[in-house]
């Protein structure tokens, strides 16, 4: 049992070695730490913005998605959407919004764990954090597509607005509205976290792979 654990967590660094090459071993730890902090901070920043423009809204309508909630002119947009039979935005991604903060904390701890595992198994722990931005995009796309394609056929404007796939990023349009969507700072922080974790693994491998090989050679 302890043998499996020690294989999983990989070799420990000898104290003498650590003293002489401190930065060699601490670099991945610090990069992971930075990545974790960025991911945690991203909770406070918007992940995604959409601006809707139409003649009767000279100031535009805004939608801003955070990982755990939606703000902006949600009420007004819902009001408009009911004409085309789109479900209220609050019904979209309810589980994701409820779970997101906990998911991010879980990823935070997994990445922290990866810093202490000196074997290749550490990469497993980092997969969620690395793929998170892609997952966010996929989820956003899924919900926009689901909402856009499942319009109530009984809605007042069902004759003039047919089911459609809203544009997730970039310029789109629906009815008299032009839409502009772009990533927010929170999303870029998550992307930075993802990149940093990958970079961290370069240093992680550089530091600990020789130790693993040496340990393997010794047995």
């Amino acid at each position: 049992m302890s043998r499996i654990i020690s294989t999983l967590i990989g070799p420990r660094v000898p104290l003498e070695e650590l003293r002489t090459h401190r930065w060699h071993y601490l670099t991945p730890t610090f990069i992971f730490m930075l990545a974790r902090v960025l991911l945690l901070v991203s909770i406070f920043f918007p992940y995604w913005h959409m601006e809707l423009e139409a003649p009767q809204y000279p100031d535009g309508l805004f939608l801003t998605a955070y990982v755990n909630h939606l703000t902006g002119d949600v009420r007004e947009i819902d009001g408009l959407n009911h004409y085309i039979g789109m479900r209220p935005l609050g019904e979209a991604a309810a589980f994701e919004r409820a779970a997101s903060v906990w998911m991010i904390i879980a990823m935070f701890m997994l990445v922290e764990g990866a810093a202490f595992i000196h074997s290749k198994w550490a990469t497993l722990l980092a997969i969620p954090a690395v793929t998170f931005p892609a997952g966010f995009y996929a989820d956003l796309h899924y919900w926009m597509r689901t909402f856009g394609l499942n319009l109530d056929p009984e809605a007042p404007l069902s004759a003039s607005v047919k089911p459609f796939v809203p544009t997730v990023i970039g310029e789109g349009g629906i009815g008299q509205f032009k839409t502009y969507a772009e990533w927010g700072q929170g999303y870029w922080l998550a992307v930075a976290c993802s990149v940093l974790v990958v970079v961290g693994f370069y240093f992680h491998r550089r530091a600990y792979r020789p130790l693993s090989l040496r340990a393997k050679g010794a047995t």
Binding site: I43, F62, H69
Partner: peptide, 19 residues
């Protein structure tokens, strides 16, 4: 703390961007 506080706190600070 975050999951309790974030939604309201951030919604308050929401700044509108003008294109």
């Amino acid at each position: 703390l975050l999951s309790c506080v974030v939604p309201d706190a951030v919604a308050q600070q929401e700044g509108r961007r003008r294109r």
